[in-house]
């Protein structure tokens, strides 16, 4: 495979295309941005007290502090749906056939989807954090810890988005893509310590939750933002998960994209 000499320019062109699409359907983007905020307010204000009481509130346990990092991860995960569907939709349309007959940087089309989603997710995370602080979230992170936390969240976004796109491309239709991505965008966050600590889960689910990637990532985020205690290896585990998911997602997605065309 020969390499185009304009990887940056081509990727930027594809990013512009995807951002334009997002602006053309503001309803869709607003939905993607609004959902996590609603989850934040719903769990934080309405169910929060009940959960907190059940989880031994009183002895210094602040449910909102516990919840917010989980909701952040959830926003990232639910945000991967739209690039996955977008990429699958692209593949069924003529314009991508055109791109594939042009001498452009091959990974650009999908990378454009990923970068577009990273930008959208950053806005969504900022909104969630804003509303969380409004209703009482009190992180005690230093500037350095904020930067690390932001870096981790972006890394998670990049890796999950690649993975979701790879899954989405296994399906021939946008509807199929949305079904196949649903488990990671919705189910995984629930089957982790997003809403309740591991100790309070039934043993089967707990075993799964303990070893799935989200848990390590949320733990690291809680540690960075709130100084929650954490095993020293957990941060590295979180990074390793991101890297592994990103690599598998990237190569799998590119392989699907190039399938059948001249190398």
């Amino acid at each position: 495979m020969s390499i185009s000499s304009y990887p940056m320019a081509d990727t930027a062109t594809m990013l512009r295309r995807n951002l334009r699409h997002a602006l053309r359907y503001p309803g869709l983007s607003l939905g993607a941005l609004g959902m996590p905020v609603i989850m934040m307010l719903l769990f934080g204000l309405i169910f929060g007290d009940t959960f907190a009481a059940g989880l031994g509130g009183g002895n210094g346990f602040d449910y909102l502090d516990f919840l917010t990092p989980g909701i952040l991860l959830m926003s990232i995960a639910s945000g991967t749906m739209s690039p996955a569907v977008g990429a699958a939709m692209d593949m069924s349309e003529g314009i991508v056939a055109r791109f594939r007959t042009m001498a452009i940087f091959r990974p650009a089309v999908l990378t454009g989807h990923v970068l577009g989603n990273v930008l959208l997710t950053i806005v969504s995370l900022a909104l969630v954090i804003g509303f969380a602080v409004l209703i009482g979230f009190r992180p005690n992170a230093s500037a350095g810890e904020w930067i690390l936390a932001a870096g981790l969240m972006i890394a998670v976004t990049v890796s999950l988005t690649w993975f979701a796109i790879a899954l989405g491309l296994t399906s021939k239709t946008p509807e199929g893509a949305s079904n196949i991505v649903l488990p990671i965008s919705l189910l995984l966050p629930f089957l982790s310590n997003t809403f309740i600590p591991l100790e309070s889960m039934p043993s089967g689910i707990r075993w799964f939750a303990e070893y799935q990637p989200f848990t390590a990532i949320i733990d690291t985020l809680r540690h960075l933002l709130l100084g929650a205690p954490m095993d020293s290896g957990t941060g590295w585990l979180a990074l390793a998960w991101c890297l592994a998911i990103a690599l598998v997602g990237y190569f799998w997605a590119q392989k699907s994209y190039n399938k059948g065309t001249a190398a």
């Binding site: 020969s2 003529g94 314009i95 056939a97 055109r98 042009m102 001498a103 001249a262």
Partner: peptide, 18 residues
């Protein structure tokens, strides 16, 4: 194939506009 792509233009049977 990249050299070929650089030399050709294609208008397929089905619409390839965004």
């Amino acid at each position: 194939p990249e050299a070929v792509r650089a030399a050709i233009g294609v208008t397929g049977q089905f619409s390839a506009v965004d």
